[in-house]
Design a binder for these strands. Structure first.
Lengths: 366, 366
DNA sequence: CTGTTAGCGCCTTCAC
DNA sequence: GTGAAGGCGCTAACAG
């Protein structure tokens, strides 16, 4: 003997509602199906009396409006933007950058009354299918590797595809600051006068191996990481630093606990750095904590810089690259909803505070 | 003159793909439409040769798999769970509790390969329509007020509805700890020996007015807030404390910065509290900071307790109610996907640390 | 293992 | 201001 899975409110307004269709409402109201459809989609077109009759019929039957699946089959819109966070999904809510970005996306979605669908991926070959099977009107892809197959998969659907961070693929919109220029500028702030510059870097590629790597640009497939390292090299080239001597500590994740080991390794080198450019404020905070533990002063023994100017950077006096992930999230959402043709590259700015020694003015050229 | 909105990869595999249907593939492969459908949905059922022929036809036409809208119109499933965070949506990613919860939901979704659709609401009368218009297989509703209309709206669709926190509505699944019992237990820990107990509370209702309110239970429509205050009253009743003398500082949001003013007001009362039960660890941290600013010692001048045992509580030595929002998120997701009939109420536990003076054993009865 | 039939619930198109 | 026809792309149910 089976018992019902759910117990419904007895009110007939709601019972079994999902099986009621426009046709039922039309029959009860004594009008055609089209009239019911108009009542929901172009109410101005329907006579007030008719509209009331339809409303009453709908109410008495517990009809609750057009079915979303049928509607989107018919008109091709789903009312949701897809957001692909990659393997990242499960810890996206812990990453301050991803959070600010998602908040920006959410703000636009809420304003427009559209949903945001987080699409899970797992780095296996079924990801393309999952992306294509998502009922969304456009895609936002959180920073990924150069030839991530989900990008062509998303592109194949004839819907807007917006990539945040990178890579820059033909047919997509790229929303990202000029990481290379910003890296060059922040290098000037943090490496000014340094003898032994070092970088604490995001992962190089999907393998996410941590290590003290000499920067082999060829194996870097995360565009953000690559562009920032290129910017550092630009600075080295311009100032006569031998960039092959640059130490790059690569973390496997943008998270303090995860990066602790490699940062310790970096600071305990026989010839430890006297200036550290970190690719995020989080990582910079961890470097600062590690320096404090070693009784090294910032910026006199070691100057450090972060990236993002996240909440907390100001209080910590951290020199950093300011950018608004929130605004970038908003921009991505607008582009994914085809609601913004006025593309402009997001702004960035070097914010000089107390963790670096330089007094130079390091803003980007206008 | 119009220029094309997107530039597509020239590869014909992808161009204009979205207009290719199963019928086209069937024609080219020389089979029926059903066979193509089987190839995608029950490949084991199709002969290898046929399957290859279909795959080749699909490839040559640039067919990329079944259209999600058509598929869900037909079979009634969408492959996504809806999550309603209320007005909360835009700052949900800042709230540590909501984040842990969402991470739990995301973990299950990723495992099952289903998406999670965040449904925006704005507290206007169109919310019901927005909820119903979401193409999802089930709803998860983040803690809300007693008679939030989105609950009947979601219920009317004949899909599983899971409410986290509260309210407990017939026909929905409720996932929440026994807040009342837990509040009584944590009260025993934090108020033990106190002369002037106080509570720093979540909002009472959707108005979210901050204030130093005498606890009028009738106006409280957030079940979580109500249950926790009831638990405090239970404790008062059992120990002979006059609960009308209990001071309740109500915050408008579970966030440190927002709650600062009311906490200052509370601590600067002519007769300030000597024990504070806060409804979250965040709020407790803010209380601790405010006490420190006043050079009051914890727990000797003032004992305090938090709620959730979030990361950070242990390091701070905070006495708190431990619960796993992550597991609760997982449970909600499973229920929303009709994948879990083994419902059991989530566990909680009082964790005694250094911010309270009591040494009693305060675990829940088995 | 493959095909036929019959819609899913709605909205575009075109008539009146 | 309203209605009739037709089909969006797919799959459940049932043959064979």
């Amino acid at each position: 003997m089976e018992s019902p899975r759910y117990i419904y409110v007895v009110d007939m307004t709601f019972a079994g509602a999902s099986r009621v269709t426009m046709a039922d409402v039309a029959r009860v109201a004594g009008v055609s199906v089209m009239t019911v459809s108009y009542c929901y989609n172009q109410p101005g077109r329907v006579a007030t009396r008719t509209r009331n009759a339809v409303a009453q019929a709908a109410q008495s039957l517990g009809y609750l409006g057009p079915d979303p699946a049928a509607r989107s089959l018919r008109n091709g819109r789903t009312g949701s933007v897809g957001v692909v966070l990659g393997e990242h999904l499960v810890y996206a809510f812990d990453d301050p950058q991803a959070r600010q970005f998602l908040t920006g996306v959410a703000a636009v979605c809420r304003h427009r009354g559209v949903g945001m669908t987080l699409i899970p991926t797992t780095t296996d070959e079924r990801d393309g299918a999952r992306v294509r099977a998502a009922a969304v009107d456009g895609f936002i892809i959180w920073t990924t590797v150069d030839s991530d197959p989900i990008i062509p998969a998303a592109l194949s659907l004839d819907k807007p595809v917006v990539v945040h961070g990178g890579p820059d693929v033909q047919g997509t919109h790229l929303v990202a600051i000029d990481d290379r220029a910003a890296a060059r500028a922040i290098s000037a702030a943090v490496f000014d006068g340094a003898k032994r510059p070092a970088v604490v870097s995001f992962p190089l590629n999907a393998a996410r191996e941590s290590g003290l790597t000499p920067p082999d640009l060829a194996e870097i497939t995360f565009p953000v990481t690559r562009n920032r390292l290129l910017g550092v090299h630009d600075y080295c080239a311009a100032t006569g630093i031998d960039s092959t001597k640059l130490v790059v500590a690569v973390t496997s994740r943008n998270e303090r606990a995860t990066s602790r080991d490699i940062i310790d390794t970096l600071l305990d080198l026989p010839d430890p750095p006297d200036a550290v450019m970190a690719m995020s404020d989080e990582l910079a905070f961890e470097v600062a904590a590690a320096l404090k533990k070693r009784d090294l002063s910032i910026p006199y023994d070691v100057s450090i810089s972060g990236w993002d100017d996240s909440p907390g950077a100001e209080a910590a006096g951290l020199t950093t690259v300011r950018q608004s992930l929130f605004e970038q999230g908003q921009q991505c959402a607008r582009l994914a909803l085809s609601d913004d043709n006025m593309w402009q590259q997001p702004a960035w700015q070097v914010v000089l505070r107390q963790t670096t020694r330089t007094k130079l003015d390091l803003q980007p050229a206008p």
